[in-house]
Design a protein around this nucleic acid. Sequence first.
DNA 1: AGGCGCATTTTGACCAGTCAAAAAGAAAGA
DNA 2: TCTTTCTTTTTGACTGGTCAAAATGCGCCT
Lengths: 224, 224
Amino acid sequence: MPSSTVEDYIKRLYHEEQRAPGTLVPMGRLAEAMNVVPGTVTTMIKALADSGLVYYEPRAGVRLTDGGRKLALHVLRRHRLVELFLVQTLGFNWSEVHDEAERLEHTISDKVLDKIDAFLGFPKADPHGSPIPCAKGIIAHEPTQTLTSCVVGERYRIARVLDNDAQFLQFAERNGLVPEAHITVISKDDYADALVVSCHSRNAPCTLGSSAAARIFVAPALLQ
Amino acid sequence: MPSSTVEDYIKRLYHEEQRAPGTLVPMGRLAEAMNVVPGTVTTMIKALADSGLVYYEPRAGVRLTDGGRKLALHVLRRHRLVELFLVQTLGFNWSEVHDEAERLEHTISDKVLDKIDAFLGFPKADPHGSPIPCAKGIIAHEPTQTLTSCVVGERYRIARVLDNDAQFLQFAERNGLVPEAHITVISKDDYADALVVSCHSRNAPCTLGSSAAARIFVAPALLQ
DNA sequence: AGGCGCATTTTGACCAGTCAAAAAGAAAGA
DNA sequence: TCTTTCTTTTTGACTGGTCAAAATGCGCCT
């Protein structure tokens, strides 16, 4: 059984890989993501490489092996099912559940996980729109286009909102920026580093800085 | 925040104290309960004494302080609410949930715990009949009489079945020996170390050895 | 009182995970 | 090519929790 520390490294590494697919993740980046000093990462990654979860190229970086990816998706599945469960069944707000899930994802057994999955009706996505990997470790395509690269005037559908900042999630909810909402970018100002987005079924448009806009992923609008 | 190891020591100590109220728990007994060697317990108990959770008398034994008891009851509350939740909401059998709860009890936050408590309607007891401490750390009186000390021929109500052995729980369930069931001890044979118990609302009586009988706690029968 | 047996404590060691700080590589500029 | 700078690795140390085995203390029996 991998320790919860190991699971955390693997999960982080998965996330960092997503941000720049096909490249090795540098140790420094992983250290920052894990909130430890670089030396600690070097030590840990060597151990993970020995146990076959990652491919490690000294002084270049690190990448998940197939086994590592499988573990990452398993952790992600637990995380996202727990998040949805907390929101759907226990009535939590979507901004509160990330930290809770961060701890619970390491202690939920497969047996409990399967019961939760069935109880929720085998859901496809968590409350933030992130796809839930299935038990076999297959995950739906995660959208890659964010608000920052939207064409002004086009209609889009919000697919996913990054969940690691509770404050931002509260802001997003207040402004109707939630999965499945349809929106249009009204204007974009590259110099001010900001854009104005109008949420269909809302009156007041709202303004986002680019780092906030980058947290919102979009997909093509549904017809009509 | 106490580590989950600390919580485990405190919880075990609470259980051992229950078995012989008012006396110091010897280190050896705690070592056995925790499944570690005695030296480990000595080290750990010294640390717990330093942090004020236990009173430690060298070479005599150890006992919870008020602070320690409060923590123990908090852990117990988590354990029992989780057990009930797993049975009631996720459809687990009462024999499966002990081990799951054993891990989850250390990662459930107060926030989640309160939600579960409300979701279940502020229950008073877990699926095995053990009382659930309230949020303030007050626990209902746990019954002390077991099947072994029942008067032959008298009617009793099963109050609680110890939950630490899944096999036994399955056996108990098969024979109707569950909380709130009314039973009568039909005969007792001290030399054979066994007794025969008849379960009201069942046809066939069943035979229990004394160590099994000691796992079943009874209370006065409800009137007719 | 003297010694025996048993529970307990001490000692030294280990593993996982971490940090601080020194050492080593690599890349890039002059 | 030489030097500077930045990242990465190494080294030594520490914490929490554990074990094995030796040392200690206590009660009890004769």
